[in-house]
Amino acid sequence: MTTSASDRSALGAFLRARRARVTPGDVGLPSGGRRRTPGLRREEVAQLAGVGVTWYTWLEQGRARNASDQVLEAVARVLRLDAAEHRHLMVLAGRGTAPEPGPPMDLRPEHTVVLAKMLPYPAAVQTDCYDLVAANRTYRYLFADLDTYPVEERNCAWLMFTEPSWRNSLVDEDTVLREITARLRNRQPEHRDDPRWNALIARLRQESPDFVRYWESYEVAADRTQQRRYASPRVGTLDVQFQSLWLDRARGERIIVMTPVDHTTAQRLERLDSLVGAAPAWTARSDSADGSAAGA
């Protein structure tokens, strides 16, 4: 399959970033003394993968067209790619299919029922590029009142990188911001023609030097359940399991839920819900299917 010039360029950047992170010792080679660049040399990757040095150089320079599955698999093995990185490589090489840009996510009544039933645990309906479609009241007030932000800013990636009250909630800031960027980087090639994705990445690159730094490191990661620690301005430190309940995994649409990992966090989430209990059980962004609806 023929790939575009931009995809070939992205593939080359990805390979260079991954090559820099594999040491000779990782693949059973002697260190060879001082090296001008970190990681493996191009000729070492080519030798271990069983391909020509010129061909591999073309891959990294974005000049190689129609790389075979055999070559891609060999390079993936040498560079020790994990499952998410392997998938990303294949998408960039034209082996994955990009979904057609679709309409905004359809918020359905059964989704809002789940949000309400999750209380006092924070939960929200989220798209693949972190747009927040709806949230229950503990999520709404977890860091700051989500409904006070303009609709176009109700995006977790945008808020975590640019909004101080959200960013200050991150106890382990570097880990969370790095993971957010890595997941965006992982799925971006599948959405190269989606205006929502292009606008989000462009805005983040323009407004956040930290995002640019993480983005250019070219780390990729898949969604996974993980433990996170937040500092809520209303109730203090929260230790939660952050997980996704998939609505449409292919499109990346999900309900995200934070469940407590200890009794103290459970009590603090109950207290948060009592503090904001006068608010509706859930609210939706005004451009969702249900408009600006809210549930009692």
Rank of each mutant, 00 (worst) to 15 (best):
N136Q: 10
D147I: 04
N155Q: 07
Q126R: 07
A135K: 03
T175K: 11
L170I: 05
R167F: 01
Y141T: 05
L146Q: 06
A135W: 12
E152N: 15
D172K: 11
V151L: 04
L177M: 00
W166C: 13
R137T: 11
N155T: 03
E153A: 11
L132Q: 13
N136D: 06
E163G: 07
Y139Q: 14
A135N: 05
S169N: 02
R140N: 11
W158G: 04
S169D: 05
F143I: 03
D131C: 04
Y130K: 02
D131R: 09
W158T: 06
D128V: 09
L146G: 14
E173V: 03
R137Y: 06
P164G: 12
R178F: 01
A134V: 09
R178D: 08
D174L: 02
Q126M: 13
R140H: 04
L142R: 11
N155F: 00
D172W: 08
R178P: 00
C129E: 11
A135Y: 06
Y139D: 09
S165N: 13
T175R: 14
Q126D: 09
D174F: 02
Q126G: 07
Y130P: 04
D145F: 00
N136E: 07
E152P: 03
D131G: 11
Y141M: 10
F161I: 07
T175C: 03
R167Y: 06
W158C: 02
V133R: 02
V151W: 02
T138D: 03
C156Y: 14
M160I: 13
V171H: 10
D174G: 02
Y130S: 09
V151G: 15
E153L: 01
A144S: 15
L170S: 02
T127Y: 02
T175A: 13
P150G: 15
L132C: 12
S165Y: 04
R154S: 13
A134N: 07
E173K: 08
Y130Q: 09
E163Y: 07
P150W: 05
D131F: 03
T162I: 10
R140I: 00
L142G: 08
M160N: 13
A135V: 12
E153F: 08
A144C: 09
N168G: 15
W166F: 15
D128Y: 15
R167E: 03
E163D: 15
L146P: 13
C129M: 11
V151Y: 00
F143R: 12
A135E: 04
D128H: 15
V133P: 01
C129L: 06
Q126H: 10
Q126A: 12
